[in-house]
């Protein structure tokens, strides 16, 4: 059951992403992407990461995409005619790269020792949090510094002179 769901969700994710990256309007792309990320969040959930799934929905689909929308609106890039679109020629390298990366990773992932799923174990929120604040305390500090300086940088750039 869950296995089937995984593949269905995978299909949704891939399809949503495909639509997103080929969308003619940035706003539409965002919407497709949100869809795709919802599906991805579900996959996370299936893979035993409820917390990550939740954050995916909250931070990605919620905050980041909104930030994108906000900027698109602010710069008045919403209408399709204002947005320069990739020419057909621009897609060629993209497609080639796509095929190369996918092909290579497929070969690598599937080669020799096919990873046997040892039975997924869901990781509880407690376990997760404990790891986060004990083993990776420094990482939390580092990422918070980084977020702070993202703010500093954004403010600096936004300075009117």
């Amino acid at each position: 059951m869950e296995t089937t769901l995984f593949y269905i969700l995978s299909a949704v994710t891939v399809f949503g992403t495909l639509c997103a990256i080929t969308a003619r309007q940035a706003v539409r792309a965002i919407v497709y992407l949100v869809t795709s990320f919802f599906a991805l969040a579900l996959i996370f959930y299936i893979l035993g990461a409820p917390l990550v799934a939740a954050f995916e929905v909250i931070i990605y689909a919620g905050a980041i995409m909104v930030l994108f929308l906000f900027v698109i609106m602010m710069l008045e890039l919403g209408s399709p005619e204002k947005l320069p679109k990739p020419r057909l020629a621009d897609w060629w390298p993209a497609v080639i790269l796509f095929l190369a990366v996918v092909g290579s990773v497929t070969v690598i992932a599937a080669s020799r020792q096919p990873a046997i799923a040892p039975g997924f174990t869901a990781i509880s929120v407690r376990e997760f949090s404990q790891a986060l604040f004990t083993r990776y305390g420094i990482a939390v500090e580092a990422i918070s510094m980084q977020l702070l300086f993202a703010l500093v940088g954004a403010l600096y750039l936004g300075r009117r002179r």
């Binding site: 390298p93 790269l97 990366v101 092909g103 290579s104 070969v107 690598i108 080669s111 020799r112």
Partner: peptide, 24 residues
Amino acid sequence: VSIYIVSFAAGGALMLGYLAWLAL
């Protein structure tokens, strides 16, 4: 920057391709 990224990505793809070829 697009050219830069294509070059970079092509390098990455080549690297992956080479490793995949080794794995085959």
